[in-house]
Amino acid sequence: MDWGAIIQNSFRGFIGEPFIYFSLAAMGLNMHYGYTGLLNFGQAVFMAAGAYGLSMAVVTLGLNFWWGLLLGIVIFPLLLALIMGVPTLRLRADYLAIVTIAASEMFRIIARSPSLDRWTGSSDGLTAFANRFYDFNPFDKQKRYFFGLFIGNQMWVVLIGWIVLSIVVLIVWMTMRSPWGRVLRAIREDEDAARSLGKNAYWFKMQSLIIGGMFGALGGMFRAIGTQSAQPQNFITDVTFFAWVALILGGAAKVGGPIAGAAILYGILNFTDVLLRQLVENGYMPEAIMDGTQVGQVRFMMIGLGLILLAIYRPQGIFGTKEEMALDDR
């Protein structure tokens, strides 16, 4: 048993690339669901908007990297939010849920269609669009950094990821202490009450959808930059629900909830992955129970078990407060 590898991998999951992009996506969901009460089951499409915004700008349209950032972080998510929000935000919460889940599947299926190969690269996706990003990399590509966890290029992605994540946390923290955040929370509690006090609930919901979507786009963009590729398969529905798991684990409507949730989710995923592999390789795990090819599935089963236990013993999430949860029943 190589305990060093187990600890190192778990720690990498805790702070590494997947942690960064799922935290960002979950921060967006927290804005949507935790603070405003919007049910977004298509965060993957906002993530895809970030990834494809950048990659299409650079590869398909031949624009420079900076225009790619603008397109991916601002313009694509903004348009998406408007397209999905304008028809649904005046209606009950369920309609947005339906539209978001449909939109995320539509985007993925359209993006991989062979007839759009020239634009989206179809199922192979687009590659090599973030060279400009790595041009600024101050780290040595050959060396390992941060307790040997990341090689130079990864370190650069992760470092910028941490910085962007901190900025997003700061934005959420500040806005949620402001009158703007107060209106969002009021809308979550009771939209009509907010309206009766002169608040334009529709517009505030739209702002929340746009801003949360932009956080999601940042997450998707990091995923694309980290792997230098934007592929439809990276934005399947599971991705949305991973972000949801991170949010629920950590606790909705808490600023740090999504981050803690994403860290724990990927920490546990990596930990169980390496642990199970080592157990199998070293013969501690009887063949009858599982073999090496099943490790991937078993770790998700364990996450599922963990979520069930969480729902039973700590439904408010790790950072949530029980008192607040109890108010729902009154």
Partner: peptide
């Protein structure tokens, strides 16, 4: 039906 905003 009173609309107090419970979690505020």
């Amino acid at each position: 039906l009173t609309k107090s905003l419970s979690k505020m």
